[in-house]
Design a protein around this nucleic acid. Structure first.
Lengths: 230, 230
DNA sequence: GGATCAAAATGACAAAATGTCAATAAACCC
DNA sequence: GGGTTTATTGACATTTTGTCATTTTGATCC
């Protein structure tokens, strides 16, 4: 009989490691917080939170392929079976992670776009914010935007981060159309997707080549503005 | 003892199915062709060709995830071990397929760009050719451009189709800079990558939405031209 | 033409990765 | 505090991938 790890001694250590990365959640260890939820519900929520934190850590550090569901469970300090209690399968877990990160980035970008900016300033501001987020969360953006079509049997039936992101751009483009700064007959939907694709590929290129960030932002901004401006 | 399939009866049938897709290779069944190569070398080449054809068929039809190395071997009419004789692993096989397709597309595009076109006509022409290729080879383009970062332990050390494709665009952009049609101080390298990304994402969007092809090409051409033209 | 050698192919087997489920523990309720 | 529900657990089963000893095939030499 070969025991499956998560030895009790290891357990708390692993969980502690995950919790370190949490901020406002430390209080929860005492048995409160989490919106007052308590008992069984809270227990389940806590497991999920730990799994999500572990998944994020490992997917970012090692990538999808090199991360085993087992690894995530161990890192989270829960049993292996618990993983499949919270996620359909490995892909489902990965998608949950990307959706979380996409949500996070969206909030971050909204915050950086509160003021009504001109088309050029707005675009530059968004790109700047993206790089800022990427610095603060190394690897997350790349992981989030990876194409999972190669992993899924057909359509995942989910809204991918890139699509969500495109929607944000579309909203912004519509705004600039309304202010009369952007082409009046611009197809905002198509343009939104083109921009997202350009940023993905261009960003990867810039990262590989270790391009100076300002150069990259300037280059992108210039082309985007030229394409969109009235 | 559970036999591993590829029963002799099935064998020829499978191989025949693959051979159907071949054109000039039928003669090779007689024992000649293939550049005069014969014997052992030729035998190996033949195996690889059959495997490549089978891999392409299955990767396109079912996708990466749903295609087992076993399936490819069976479809090719060779033993399972032969697969690993020709490819490092499944990813290696997939990359070989994408490289083949990328090569093919490149040749196709070159042929469609023989004449020295103006910037706008040239861009439109390239996009048109891409869609034409995509029609003639359904699924191949999508498969080729998929991001495999999610499958590889670190860098694959290979030049991906998207990069190759970007290089083509860069060359074209340099040409238009030389003719004075494109921005004199354009960063062709960055622009090349941005365009490839835009086409990937925009193409996927158009496909999903079943956009009219001309609408899609017009929309893309317009934005690209505006961004690049002097 | 058959004995010999080298390259290629084969498929049973092994390892790795993913996913399941009966048994157990924890929380809940009366 | 015991009966019930819900979450957790890890040994086990399945699937997928990869290996290697053995066999087959074709070239070479006599």
């Amino acid at each position: 009989m070969i025991t499956e790890e998560t030895g009790s001694g290891t357990r708390e250590a692993a969980e502690a490691a995950v919790l370190e990365n949490e901020e406002a959640e430390i209080a929860s260890a005492a048995g409160k917080a989490e919106g007052g939820v308590t008992g069984a519900v809270r227990r389940k929520l806590e497991s999920r939170r730990k799994l999500m934190a572990a998944a994020r850590k490992l997917f970012v550090e090692r990538g999808y392929h090199e991360t085993r569901p087992q690894d995530i469970s161990r890192e989270a300090g829960v049993g292996h079976g618990t993983f499949y209690l919270h996620f359909e399968d490995k892909l489902d877990c990965f998608l949950a992670f990307t959706e979380q990160a996409a949500e996070e980035l969206e909030v971050f970008l909204e915050a950086h776009l509160a003021g009504a900016n001109s088309l050029e300033d707005g675009i530059r501001e968004i790109l700047l914010a993206i790089f800022e987020y990427s610095d603060a969360n190394p690897g997350v953006l790349a992981a989030t935007l990876t194409d999972v079509s190669v992993l899924s049997k057909g359509d995942t039936g989910r809204k991918m981060p890139a699509d969500r992101w495109a929607e944000s751009w579309i909203k912004a483009l519509e705004h600039w159309k309304a202010t009369g700064e952007a082409l009046a007959d611009l197809d905002s939907r198509l343009a939104g997707y083109l921009i997202v694709g350009a940023i993905k590929q261009g960003g990867a290129y810039g990262f590989r080549q270790k391009l100076d960030r300002d150069t990259l932002i300037d280059g992108m901004t210039r082309l985007f503005v030229r394409a969109l401006k009235k």
